[in-house]
């Protein structure tokens, strides 16, 4: 193979032009060396390329996928404990959320007609590939669960599909954390420890919210408790994340969407275990607040990540600190 080796004379002794040395001309007059400030970016340009994902597709998918997965789990739990109303509402909700998820995922592709190319391979190194296969396993079961429940046909198959979708649903609701964390986007990547718990909590809260909104009061107790528990987990995970990330967590701490999401979820969850136990209208309002809260949280996380990708300081400074630490450790050793 031809290589860069521009030599006309073939002699190894002659210096090639590429051996010209910068700064060797000499003769620099002594000057008061002005203190150099350290530039930490190239004209303030981001180091990373901005994710091409759109919030109305991918942030929406984070929400809908969580809602679908956790609703299926809730449906399975409700069915096994003799709450057919909650089970049915959750199954139908899960199926709708699944459809919405697929719409968002496909809509965000540059070439939607090539969606099925995702099924060419299975790669554990790609959460998107893993997620596609989770959806492939979960989708038919969620569909069968809802269809058998609504029609009353094949109850045995329906039971199996309900349980299967309930189990697969936990994977669907949480893998999305790995999906966004497995990027170079500082906020998303650095938060990978808390992200799955935050997403699981947010998913449970939204599924609980949908259950409260749709199921008969008498059967909605698990939904109310799931909403409360989910909201608690979500809030704890979020505050731990914001603290642990230090300077990188700034976009999270600044996010108004995240604060709004927390407020809505907390209000919904607290209303859920108080007034919504007796009043249908209150239950519906609390459920709607929980759904809105979960959606705000997902959009908030999404936008905080975008903000961190678009500002070089979130990429450069942590890496510099890491290098300095490594250097210090080497010197100590």
């Amino acid at each position: 193979m031809s290589q860069t080796d521009v030599r006309m004379d073939g002699s190894a002794e002659t210096r090639a032009d590429r051996e010209a040395t910068p700064g060797s001309a000499g003769g620099r007059r002594e000057r008061l060396v002005t203190h150099r400030e350290r530039a930490d970016s190239y004209y303030g340009r981001p180091v990373l390329n901005e994710p091409t994902w759109k919030d109305h597709d991918i942030a929406a998918y984070l929400f809908l996928g969580g809602l679908a997965g956790a609703s299926s789990t809730l449906a399975a739990a409700a069915e096994l404990t003799g709450r057919p109303g909650l089970a049915r509402a959750s199954k139908v909700g899960a199926l709708g959320a699944l459809g919405g998820s697929l719409y968002c995922l496909i809509h965000d592709l540059g070439r939607p007609e090539r969606f099925l190319n995702m099924l060419r391979v299975f790669k554990v190194t790609s959460p998107m590939s893993v997620g596609t296969w989770i959806l492939t396993g979960y989708g038919p079961q969620a569909g069968a669960a809802a269809a058998t429940d609504m029609t009353g046909l094949f109850p045995g198959l329906g039971r199996a599909a309900t349980v299967g979708a309930g189990l697969a649903g936990t994977a669907l609701a949480t893998y999305t954390a790995a999906l966004i964390s497995d990027t170079a986007v500082p906020v998303w990547h650095e938060a990978y420890r808390e992200m799955p718990f935050l997403f699981a909590g947010s998913a449970a809260a939204s599924a609980g919210g949908l259950g409260m909104l749709a199921a008969p009061l008498a059967e909605a107790a698990p939904a109310r408790r799931a909403a409360l528990l989910g909201t608690a987990v979500e809030c704890v995970a979020a505050s731990r994340m914001e603290r642990r990330l230090g300077p990188v967590g700034e976009p999270l701490r600044r996010s108004r969407l995240l604060r709004l999401g927390e407020a809505l979820s907390l209000a919904g969850a607290l209303a859920g275990v108080t007034v919504a136990r007796r009043s249908r209208v209150a239950a519906m309002a609390a459920g709607a607040a929980l759904l809105a809260g979960s959606a705000c949280t997902r959009f908030g996380i999404f936008h905080a990540g975008m903000e961190s990708a678009n500002d070089p300081k979130y990429t450069v400074q942590p890496q510099r600190r890491r290098l300095a630490k490594k250097r210090a450790e080497r010197e100590l050793a």
Partner: peptide, 29 residues
């Protein structure tokens, strides 16, 4: 970024198990 992926999957696994357990508990009573 995939250097941390094994740990990410472990955390996802824990969260999924937690979600399952949490919802089971809420439906128990």
């Amino acid at each position: 970024t995939t250097r941390d992926l094994p740990s990410m999957w472990r955390h996802v696994g824990m969260a999924a198990a937690g979600l399952l357990a949490g919802i089971a508990v809420t439906a128990w009573r």
